[in-house]
Computed example of a mutant assay.
Amino acid sequence: MHSPTGWNAIFKPYRQEPVAGWDEAGYPVIVDAATGRRLTVHDLPDHEFCNLELVRHSFMTALPANDWQVVFADNDGAAFHVPVLAWLFTADGRATPVIADADGSAVDPRELGNFVQVWHPSSPTARIPSIPAHLKESN
């Protein structure tokens, strides 16, 4: 997840959340994905706030991702494709593909459990990818 402030909050048991801002008292605030509510880092249920970490690679630019696709595996092991909306580039040159999730939020598809690969149809080895055997067996 992208941190709008450049900071992530770290919790025990391990959880990492982007810091959305600070409250009037100066405490970091996150958005709880389960409720959509803004919470101070000390108010996240069932988690103990540990520390803040500076996000080392802030995004510098975004470029359209013409024709790039993400391949996912559904519960039956069949492949389905989702278009990549954009590529985000960091100051150190790393590229992150971005797709829209079911709620319309921008996400890195590589962080989703059923991610298979990112591909472009004009690649010399382009083909409709099949699901790797190890993913089929786990479903």
Rank of each mutant, 00 (worst) to 15 (best):
V107Y: 11
L135W: 09
V82P: 07
D23N: 09
G36Y: 03
M60G: 12
I99M: 09
A78I: 03
C50K: 15
E137I: 14
P4N: 02
G26F: 00
H47S: 01
A73L: 03
V84S: 05
S138G: 03
V19I: 12
V116P: 00
E111V: 11
D108G: 01
D103M: 10
V31A: 02
G104E: 07
A100L: 12
R94F: 00
E48C: 05
P64L: 02
V107H: 12
A65N: 01
D76A: 12
A73I: 00
L52C: 11
T61N: 14
T90E: 07
F89D: 15
I131G: 04
P64S: 08
V70P: 03
W22R: 15
D92E: 14
H120F: 08
P13D: 01
L44K: 14
I10W: 00
R56T: 11
G26K: 05
N51K: 15
V55Q: 05
A86D: 05
D67A: 12
G21N: 07
A133M: 10
A34N: 07
I30E: 03
V82F: 03
L44G: 00
N114H: 09
S138A: 10
R110Y: 01
N75F: 11
F49I: 13
M1T: 04
W7K: 14
Q69C: 04
W68E: 00
L63A: 12
A100F: 10
W22E: 06
D76N: 12
P124W: 08
D76G: 12
G6M: 03
R110W: 01
N66D: 09
P18Y: 04
P124D: 01
A20V: 09
H57Q: 12
A73D: 05
E111Y: 06
F115Y: 08
V116T: 01
I30Q: 07
L39G: 09
D92A: 14
F72D: 06
A86V: 02
L85R: 14
W22G: 06
V31L: 10
A33D: 13
G93R: 14
A20Q: 10
V116W: 04
S58A: 06
P83F: 06
T96S: 08
S130E: 07
K136L: 11
V71R: 13
P18T: 04
R127S: 02
S138C: 06
G26W: 00
S122N: 13
E48I: 12
A102M: 12
D103I: 04
